[in-house]
Each structure stands twice: as structure tokens, then as C-alpha cells.
């Protein structure tokens, strides 16, 4: 049971190993705050959709399973969107379009199709949580590097010296920085994995 949880964090990390959900990964990792917000929202949707799809798996005919999954996922995403808009408007504003786009995040449909519709609720919960945590950690890691280099801060707190913060490495926080950071991290993880085996 615990294995279903831990596999999402390192061995089958959705971002670094499975390379799923890269669009939001690249887009929202400009600050740690955004990364945590996005990770939290995606984890909630992942967990809830895994639970419901695992519960409904025997009721949904397999010919219409994909539209049924999408309806379930889209409902939870919309709930997250509305609740966030009402209670944490600042975060909602900075994540903007990427909240509704969780609907098409491959991790969520991927886990529904590959895991939740074959396994029981307990396992699906662990899988959803594990994948969500793995996704969040990956986002935070990338965001920490980009925020530190591109803005001189970590979670909004100034870290680098002042002259650096006045003219930081802007590329890190722009789109190319996202690709470079993620590529280097993926390569690094591959080296580590190879050494292990």
C-alpha cells in the first residue's frame, strides 16, 4: 500500500520520469508560491478523480469511459477554480488560466485510465496522493531554482544580495529558463538513476 504512495515521488515521478503535465510545469514555476498553489490544486483534483473513478469503474461502460472521466475531472477542477476564486483570490489571479487547464493535465486522465479504473479505492487514494505530491515537489524544485536565479528570492523572501536582485538572471524566470531548468534536472535524475542501477 505504501509503495503505491512512494512510487509517485521518485521512481515514477510524473514530471521527471513520466514527463506528463509539462505544460503547467513550465508555465507556473516562476515562483514557489505559484508552484505550491498549482501542486495543491492538481493533487486535490487527482485524489478526488481517482476516488470517484475507482468507485464508478464497474458502473461506467468502457465505450464511454473517457467522456465520463473528463466530466468527473472537469467538475472537480471547476470546484477548485470557484473555491480558490472566492477564498484565495490573489493566488487565483496569479495562476490564472492554468487552473481550468488542469482538466487537460495528462497526469490526471493518465492515472484515471492507467490506475484508478483497475484498482480499488484504497490503492487509488494512495496513488493519487503520491502522484500529486511528486508533481508538487517537482514543481517546487523547478520553481525554487528559477525564482532564486531569476528574481533573487525564495518564497518571496530576499535571498541574494541586493545588487543581484536589481539585475537578476532574467532568463531563468522567462520561458526559456523553464525548459533549461527542467532539462538539466531531468538529465541529473537520469544520471543518478543510471548510477544506482
Amino acid at each position: 500500500m505504501l509503495k503505491e504512495f512512494t512510487k509517485g515521488i521518485v521512481k515514477e515521478n510524473p514530471v521527471f520520469i513520466m514527463a506528463l503535465g509539462l505544460c503547467p510545469t513550465l508555465a507556473v514555476t516562476t515562483s514557489i508560491e505559484n508552484a505550491i498553489g498549482m501542486g495543491g490544486a492538481a493533487t486535490f483534483v487527482l485524489l478526488m478523480s481517482n476516488v470517484f473513478i475507482s468507485l464508478l469503474k464497474n458502473l461506467i461502460p468502457s465505450q464511454v469511459r473517457i467522456p465520463a472521466y473528463i466530466v468527473v475531472i472537469a467538475s472537480f477542477v471547476t470546484i477548485v477554480d470557484m473555491v480558490m476564486h472566492a477564498y484565495i483570490p490573489a493566488l487565483h489571479k496569479s495562476l490564472g488560466l492554468f487552473i481550468p487547464l488542469i482538466v487537460v493535465n495528462c497526469i490526471i486522465l493518465g492515472r484515471a485510465e492507467a490506475f484508478a479504473n483497475k484498482n480499488n479505492v484504497g490503492k487509488s487514494i494512495m496513488d493519487g496522493l503520491g502522484m500529486g505530491v511528486g508533481f508538487t515537489l517537482a514543481l517546487v524544485l523547478i520553481a525554487a531554482i528559477r525564482e532564486l536565479l531569476g528574481n533573487g528570492t525564495l518564497y518571496g523572501a530576499p535571498v541574494m544580495w541586493e545588487s543581484y536582485r536589481n539585475s537578476p538572471m532574467l532568463m531563468a524566470i522567462l520561458a526559456p529558463g523553464a525548459f533549461v531548468t527542467m532539462g538539466l534536472l531531468m538529465g541529473l535524475l537520469n544520471i543518478l538513476n543510471k548510477k544506482k542501477s
Binding site: L59, I60, P61, Q63, V64, A68, V71, V72, A74
Partner: peptide, 12 residues
């Protein structure tokens, strides 16, 4: 098939 989808969408 249609009924199942209808029910799911309706509840949602």
C-alpha cells in the same frame, strides 16, 4: 450508454 453519461453529467 447515453443514459449513464447523462446521469454523470447531471449529477456533476
Amino acid at each position: 450508454l447515453a443514459l449513464v453519461l447523462l446521469i454523470i453529467a447531471g449529477v456533476a
